[in-house]
Design a protein around this nucleic acid. Sequence first.
DNA 1: TAGGTCAGTTCTTATTTCGAACCAAGTCGG
DNA 2: CCGACTTGGTTCGAAATAAGAACTGACCTA
Lengths: 150, 150
Amino acid sequence: MATEPVKGCSIQASLDVLGDRWTILILRDAFRGVRRFDEFRRDLDIARPVLTERLKRLVEHDVLARHLYCDRPPRHEYRLTTKGIALSPTLVALMRWGDEWLSDGAAPTVLVHEACDHPLDQQFVCWECNETFTPHDIASRPGTPAAPRS
Amino acid sequence: MATEPVKGCSIQASLDVLGDRWTILILRDAFRGVRRFDEFRRDLDIARPVLTERLKRLVEHDVLARHLYCDRPPRHEYRLTTKGIALSPTLVALMRWGDEWLSDGAAPTVLVHEACDHPLDQQFVCWECNETFTPHDIASRPGTPAAPRS
DNA sequence: TAGGTCAGTTCTTATTTCGAACCAAGTCGG
DNA sequence: CCGACTTGGTTCGAAATAAGAACTGACCTA
């Protein structure tokens, strides 16, 4: 897969890793605790060769790691790495959008703050003012300060 | 942990709308201010029939709206709806993950709080304790039909 | 009238994805 | 030891999807 010099867009770069019909669903399962090949396969109803390829890809990109969990019959499991866990804001955002805009009723699953068991929210926060704000208050600036890019 | 078929998963529902190779890139452009057919086409280097189909789909799903912006030669533009704008946490999350884990240096584009021009952060916040927390502090509860707040 | 733009549609071709079958290592029951 | 079964794959041909190039058609400008 030709990974060309990403036109300076991190969304594109992320989609190079995640952007196909199955990868995000595989990761959703991984967040729910699914770890084994057949477990993914049954849960997602995905073709075997496709699952093989996607898992390999995610391991290559260091989003999942392949662990040997059983010696005698050699068995592997796929676990989220730190880099993989760092995708949770993305998954949470997708889930919340689906809940809010696509669901025909109540959310099928609710995420909560484990400590107090109350529902979670996801917000934009400013480093400086420490205030939360809406999408409408976002602006974008090219590049980091003094970072030569082109 | 039971692996029952996850019907009614909101991530799956969201991906039914967004989950192909182009849709999220189209939306990224839309957030950046792109509105016209040819502008999308040139910027993304996407095949015309595919762009036609994706835009139609996004309009059908009420993520984009097709506006007539010129009468005499009838011209249309595609704008984000409220539902579309509600996707910004998803796009921001993807962008930030790419920035942090895939970029070979500085982030190509930085999002800022428009009011004060300082970089934005995206966080999980608890409705009750009002505290921010990490992915590790998230738990999930099956379909609690908790009535949304007033 | 000629040439150009914008927003498509309609083809043909190339790439992905699918499903079904096959494979291999190990395990269990008899 | 034999055969059935499990996990985790690989290898096929067939089907769905995307790509590319050319064509349409409404308008605009000179």
